[in-house]
Write a protein that binds this DNA or RNA. Structure first.
Lengths: 224, 224, 224, 224
DNA sequence: TATGAATGAGGATTCATTCAT
DNA sequence: AATGAATGAATCCTCATTCAT
């Protein structure tokens, strides 16, 4: 796991610190992620981070002015990543592929989110923990979601409503229900069952069907 | 809200501290809930709690041996409450009322959980925050859930499967999907929209229909 | 010296902290004065102060929120004392005793200031050291001096000019010269010669005569 | 001022570092003087000095083994300059010009000191701040003063006492009074009024007359 | 029982200095 | 010669907990 982590850490940090990430920085970040995830930000001590990183405590502060800066340098890029690629890469292709069914769209999204969570599991946990206490983080996430995600999702929903695959209930509610199920699926898979048995393919299939069927227009509803 | 809070705090503490809850204890608990919710357990200081409670620092430690004890005296009873009444009071009546449909059952549960969350919003937030860092809490919740909730839920699910209202997919999956949607509904309602406009009745209806329809046996699925 | 110090420290702190000064506070203040005087504020460490005071480091911060607060609690009362009694008690009596000569006035002031400096030598040293780096201190001293001291001094000077004992040169210049000599006398006596031989009475006499004669109207000057 | 400063800094450093002063050294010294003057030696950080000098932190320590060395390389030459040229250049000429009056001597000295203070204002401030905490500095200044200044001044005083321009009071006292007034004049001029209105010529004249008259033999004193 | 002063370990952060490049 | 990353001791300060009153 250490190797896989280094990989995405490197990616992550390169994103906003334009350029070089030294080995030392990487080991600091790795240790920070570990300790933050284990104890929570407030209960994590810079001295423990330094120790685990095999680095003097002062070294941390040469690279990150404060403990909070260290937190942000880990979490902020994940917020970007959370939204960015999701929409740009995957969804656009889905949208342009007009022939696809809602079902295929859902499968793609769920698969994509599961991979994302798998990659960033630890940082996502930290992010979820800390967001309530750091207004900047909250604000940034909110902005991303409202500016990028929501608008596009509404478009997609309406697209499938016109195709008759989704009932004509308000888009926000459709989003709420769909996201709830997908998010819960991902959280359960990676947080509760991250080392337990879990039939991925089957569960994915059932989740997708549940949503599709739950949102399908039906006689009784449409007549209303 | 302060009054309502005092009420449930009194209830809560009585549950496991057999009997007397002095005014002082109550104000300490109230202050603790406030501060823990605002800053998180680790970042909350006992001195601030004492100050808000209008009590000397030492007084807290006369009633609660450690800061963690204070946390547990707030969260543990909520875990009990979370599970206990839910099952004993409401569900049994539902189960015995054999004529009820799955839909009615869901509506009842969702309504019940919304009220529960409304009552204990702050403590639930604390609980959600702290559970990852306190194995005892996690263990206790897990025990309760597996021992009481799951078994009963399986029974209920099978009951409705026999009645043909739920498709014949594995009970755990049914539970996962149902709970996901209900929990998400509750969380959204009380955390994200706790002071925003939200059409309670309509959203409840749509959530219920979504689940019912999502789980309904249908031709295509059954043929497989 | 320790006893004498305790005495004035007690006085000093009572002045602005209305009421009780515990033994512990006193030993903290005594240690702080010592260490600040020896090493300067910036180079003094709270841990050394605590050690010398025979007190845990945390105890200091129970009584004084910050290291700077500790400094201010020592220096601010001295600024008040520096000006207050000087004017109210002594000078008024001098002014009302219309028959006194400028010479007697000077002798009284010089004597008074020497005693003041003797009492507060260490704190005055700290004050002199730190004033350039703490704008609040500078501002407070300036305000006191301009509001209280200068106005009164101008009155006194003019009084003696009318009596013909001081030449008709601008009052500010008279003040500058007089204060220079008195202050220098005091500083030399208590800073450079604080443990060296120094004939107090004779030097006082010579300082007084020097000023009196230096400011006396003389034929050549008046004709101009 | 930057240019003027460079000039004297160059002079200053050449004096004791026999020869080469690179541009880098100069900018380090300039930055050091600035920061020491602003914050005091103890509160000044080498990193800020390096930053202001546009130089890497390590570079400072290549030229000056420790932070204190940097301080000494700034202050020590000023002590030399303070005493040395003052006596050698100016006073000797005054002494040999036997016809001059005490008044002219004072005027020359005061003028010279004002210029000196103007040139070295910042470093003198640093010196005054730091002398109490650095015994070597104190010792060096004391040695210079007693060895060079005092002896010569006594000679000069006696010279004017023989000419009947100064009363027959002990030379140390004459020096004390004279130096007090001159030093105070200089300090006031350059520290308190360094950017305020101040009639230089007139104030100089009044200071000189004050001293001359204050020390003049008079009937009453001589009869004693 | 309640207080709040006292504790001292531990917190984040700064800083003069070193040293490999 | 110059750099600047790395160090780790030392800094001010906070905090949960204790205990005499």
């Amino acid at each position: 796991m250490s190797e896989r982590m280094d990989q995405w850490l490197t990616e992550l940090v390169r994103l906003n610190e334009d350029d070089r990430v030294t080995d030392r920085q990487l080991s600091i970040l790795r240790a920070a992620v570990e300790v933050f995830a284990e104890k929570g930000f407030a209960a994590a001590s810079t001295s423990e981070i330094a120790q685990r990183a095999g680095v003097a405590e002062g070294t941390i502060f040469r690279h990150y002015k404060t403990k909070k800066d260290l937190l942000l340098s880990i979490t902020v890029p994940v917020i970007d990543e959370f939204v960015g690629p999701f929409l740009l890469r995957d969804l656009d292709t889905i949208l342009t592929a007009q022939h696809e069914r809602f079902e295929d769209f859902l499968r793609a999204v769920l698969f994509n989110r599961l991979q994302f969570a798998n990659k960033y599991a630890q940082v996502l946990r930290i992010l979820a923990q800390e967001i309530p206490f750091h207004p900047e983080l909250k604000a940034q996430l909110k902005q991303y979601v409202t500016e990028n995600v929501l608008k596009r999702l509404v478009g997609i929903i309406e697209h499938f409503q016109e195709k008759g695959e989704i009932a004509r209930i308000p888009a926000p509610t459709v989003i709420r229900l769909t996201v709830s199920v997908i998010l819960s699926h991902v959280v359960l898979r990676h947080i509760l069952f991250h080392d337990a048995p879990w039939q991925d393919d089957e569960e994915i299939e059932m989740t997708v069907r549940f949503i599709v069927q739950g949102l399908r227009p039906d006689a009784s509803r449409d007549q209303k």
